[in-house]
Write a protein that binds this DNA or RNA. Structure first.
Length: 365
DNA sequence: GAGACGTGGCT
DNA sequence: TAGCCAAGTCT
């Protein structure tokens, strides 16, 4: 800790005592709750997380409860939050904690960081907030606050920038109050020291802020440009047989890992939509289909690409569908679809089917 | 170490 | 519309 840090800590902690948000995971000393909230909050807004956190804690109130739950139910509860590897890792880590740590989270940063889904930030956050240890935690908010406070001109996500910001995060940390201090920095970053139009006039640290003094606060942190995202056209089959439809579970790793979907895939150059869909079903399920009426068109933006998806009602012509690329496939009724974890688009298709399936005038669930 | 990995909100 | 985020981690 260097001299100016004492002032920073005093100003910030005093501000935090007046302005700390009341959040469901704050004020409770349960390390499990802190852990769950930190994983949910990765790349995700507080307002989005709150209802998920409450449902999660009601269903999985402890490490043991989570460790014993089937993955499908874990993913179903996570559905809509995105970055599903977080849920898979949380589940795996709970099983490791149950088997190797007697159901109690390890208290040391290094041990926490060995668990799946817990990186440098989350380990520091849990160690400081749940166990009172003097650990720094550099997240997007703290990165921005520190880059401005100390006018860090290095690209924030470069190795040199990262190293400098972690060093600053450790240097400003007040002994014995790291947990509150880290949370105070994050609250400041999300409410006042915002990416655009920061509210410097009401910031408790404004008199100490280098970037503010130089008028470059909006240019900090220095971010590198992102590459443009491709736009794909994809198809999906709502394959019907008797009163059931076919769904497939995606492989456990990668995009939407472990989630269920209506089979289909990317259109290749020169293909018509039905041609592409017939080819995909041949490749994925070893079956020949007849492509019928279009059920809907869905636009969706993922992190690194964007899709336009055309969903079609289909019938089997030849072959018994086999899980060639999927983890498994299932024939289910429309009413059963709700129990299977799905990403945004496939859930929209499911809901559309349920609407068509339900007699008119009946209220929706 | 650059790219993969979701979704919703706002511009 | 397309772009840009918002409490990161993993490979």
């Amino acid at each position: 800790m260097f001299p100016m840090s004492e002032t920073i800590a005093q100003l910030l902690l005093s501000w935090y005592r007046q302005n700390a948000r009341q959040l469901p995971w704050r004020g409770s000393p349960d390390p499990y709750a802190v852990w769950v909230s930190e994983i949910m909050l990765q790349q995700t807004r507080v307002e989005t997380v709150i209802p998920y956190f409450q449902r999660w804690m009601a269903r999985f109130p402890s490490v043991a409860a989570l460790a014993e739950a089937p993955l499908d139910e874990v993913l179903r509860l996570w559905e809509g939050l995105g970055y599903y590897s977080r849920a898979r890792n949380l589940h795996r880590a709970a099983q490791l904690i149950a088997s190797h740590y007697g159901g109690q989270l390890p208290t040391e940063r290094a041990a926490l960081e060995k668990l799946p889904g817990i990186g440098r930030y989350t380990a520091g956050a849990i160690a400081s907030m749940a166990f009172g240890q003097d650990e720094a935690a550099l997240d997007g908010n703290i990165r921005r606050v520190l880059a401005r406070l100390f006018d860090v001109a290095l690209p924030a996500r470069s190795p040199a920038g990262e190293a400098r910001l972690w060093e600053l995060a450790r240097q400003v940390l007040p002994p014995d109050e790291a947990g509150d201090f880290n949370q105070a920095l994050m609250d400041l970053g999300s409410s006042i020291c915002t990416p655009r139009s920061p509210a410097c006039l009401v910031c408790p640290l404004t008199s100490l802020c280098r970037a503010r003094q130089l008028g470059v606060q909006e240019q900090r942190p220095v971010l590198s440009a992102r590459s443009a995202v491709p736009h794909l056209t994809v198809t999906a089959a709502v394959l019907r047989r008797d009163s059931q439809v076919l769904i497939a579970q995606r492989p456990p790793q990668g995009l939407l890992g472990g989630m269920w979907e209506f089979p289909g895939g990317k259109l290749e150059p020169g293909e018509s939509l039905p041609e592409g869909l017939r080819r995909e079903i041949r490749e994925e399920l070893a079956a020949e289909i007849e492509v019928g009426e279009e059920l809907g068109v869905f636009e969706h933006a993922y992190t690194h690409f964007r899709v336009t998806l055309h969903a079609f009602f289909c019938r089997l012509r030849a072959g018994e569908p086999t899980a060639l690329e999927a983890s498994q496939i299932r024939w289910v009724t429309v009413d059963e679809l709700a129990a299977f974890p799905m990403g945004k688009i496939d859930r929209q298709i499911s809901r559309r089917l349920a609407q068509l399936h339900r007699p008119k005038g009946e209220p929706r669930g």
